[in-house]
Design a protein around this nucleic acid. Structure first.
Lengths: 222, 222
DNA sequence: GCATTTATTTGCGTATGCATTAAGTAATGA
DNA sequence: TCATTACTTAATGCATACGCAAATAAATGC
C-alpha cells in the first residue's frame, strides 16, 4: 500500500546515520565495510556508496585497510562547527529580516519558539532539542540560500551528536529562548542588523557552553 | 620509478573535475555512467564512486535514468556561493588577525599579493587568477578552521568554473589588490574588525561584478 | 488519427568474485 | 636486542554480471 521501495544505498545512509547518532556506532570506533554490510544485511556495494556520502558530510572517514572510522567529536571540532554555524546562520537571519516576511511566513518559526517554552516549562529536554532544531532549520530556510541550508544541515548533525552526549549534563536553557524571540522580532521588523547581531551572540554563547561541557565530558571519559 | 599508482576512483575524481572545469563536460550537459566510464577507460564502479563524491561537492547531480548532470551555474547560484564565501572568509580574516602572526607566517599571503601585482602589470589574467586563488586559500588557512577551509575550497571551485566563462569579459582587477593589501595589513596589525570588514566588502564587490557578468553572459548564450 | 496498451530497450542498483596492496608477523642477520 | 626483509593474511578497489524498473517504441483498439 503505502510501502515505497527504498534503494539499499539510501537505506544504508539512513541507518548508518541513525546508528551514529544513537551511539550504536560509537564515535572513534572502526568498522570494516564487510562488517557494516553484515549489520545492514546487504552487500558491500551500497554500503560503500553510503560511506562515501557520509564521508562527504563529515560523519566518518574511510581509512584504507583500517576500516571506516566514525569521527570523534573533540571540543576543538565543535568550536569549528559552531563558528561556521554562527557565521552562516546570522547571515541567514540578516537575509530573512531583509525579506519582508509577514506573520504567516514566520508562523513556523514562532511555533518553534512556543514549543521550546512549553518544553522548558515541563522540563522535557528532548522536546526542547527538537524544537530548537526546528527553529534553527526554519531560520536558515527563511534566509533563502540553499547552500547555506545544506551546510548548516550538515553542521547541525554534528551538534546533534554532541548534544546527545551532553544533554543530560546541562541546565535547562531558559534564557536561550529570549534570544530566539529577539531574533524573531528583529526579522519581523525588518531590522537586519539586530537580527544578525543577536543571533551571532546567541550562537557564540551556545558554543561556549557546549565546548565547556564537552571538555568536561572528555575529562571524565578519557 | 617516481610513479605512484593512483586508484581509479581518485583518478576519476581528478579527471572528471578537470573536464568539468575545462568545459569538456559542459555545464548543464547529461552523461550516462557508462559513457563516463568509457571516456575514462575504466569500469562503472569507480566512476560511480567519483560521481558520488563530486555530487557531495556540488559539481554534478545524479538523476536516475537521466544520467549524470553537470550542474549549470546560474547567476543566482553564484550569488549564493559568494555569500557563503563572504561570511566564512571574513571570519577567517578576523581569526587570522587575532592569531598574532608574524611576517614569516604571512609570507605566503604577501607573495600572492605581489604576484597579483606582477600579473596585472603584464596583463596576465591566468596568472592573476592563480595568485588570487592562492591569496584566498592562504587567508582561510591562516584562519585555522578546517571545516571552513573545506567549505571554502568547494565554493571556490564553483567560482573558478564561473570565472572560466567570464574571465575574458572582465577588466583587469587593478583595484582589487588594494583590498588585499588592506586585509594583509589589518591581519599583520592584529586589527580583527578591519580585517573582517575589509574582506567582507571585497567579496561583496566581487560578487556584484561576477553576478553581473554571468547575467550578461547568459543573455548572450541562452 | 489519437489514445492506450504492450513490447522492447536501456540504464541503474546491487551482488559477487578476483586481484591488488598494505598491515602485521615471523624469520634471519648483524 | 634491534633492524631489515620476506611472507602471510585479509581488506579494499575494481570489474563484471544480472535483474528490475523506467523510458521509449510499436501496435492495437477506438
Amino acid at each position: 500500500m503505502t510501502k515505497k521501495p527504498i534503494s539499499s544505498s539510501q537505506r544504508a545512509i539512513q541507518e548508518l546515520r541513525a546508528k551514529i547518532f544513537s551511539g550504536e556506532l560509537a564515535a572513534g570506533s572502526d568498522h570494516l565495510e564487510s562488517e557494516l554490510a553484515d549489520l545492514l544485511e546487504m552487500s558491500r556495494t551500497p554500503v560503500r556508496e553510503a560511506v562515501l556520502t557520509l564521508e562527504g558530510q563529515g560523519l566518518l572517514e574511510m581509512r584504507p585497510r583500517k576500516g571506516v572510522r566514525i569521527l570523534p567529536l573533540s571540543p576543538e571540532d565543535m568550536a569549528e562547527v559552531y563558528d561556521v554555524l554562527t557565521e552562516l546562520e546570522s547571515h541567514a537571519a540578516e537575509c530573512a529580516a531583509l525579506a519582508d516576511y509577514d506573520d504567516d511566513d514566520l508562523s513556523e518559526l514562532s511555533r518553534a519558539i512556543d514549543d521550546m517554552d512549553a518544553a522548558i516549562a515541563e522540563g522535557n529536554l528532548d522536546a526542547w532539542a527538537d524544537a530548537d532544531d526546528r527553529f534553527h532549520g526554519e531560520l536558515v530556510r527563511l534566509g533563502g540560500n540553499k547552500r547555506i541550508q545544506a551546510i548548516v544541515g550538515m553542521m547541525s548533525d554534528q551538534v546533534r551528536r554532541a548534544r546527545m552526549t551532553t544533554l543530560f549534563m546541562r541546565p535547562l536553557p531558559t534564557k536561550s529562548n529570549e534570544d530566539h524571540r529577539m531574533v524573531y522580532q528583529a526579522i519581523r521588523n525588518g531590522d537586519a542588523a539586530t537580527a544578525r547581531d543577536t543571533h551571532r551572540q546567541h550562537r557564540q554563547h551556545a558554543k561556549a557552553i557546549l565546548v565547556a561541557l564537552l571538555s568536561k565530558h572528555r575529562l571524565r571519559y578519557l
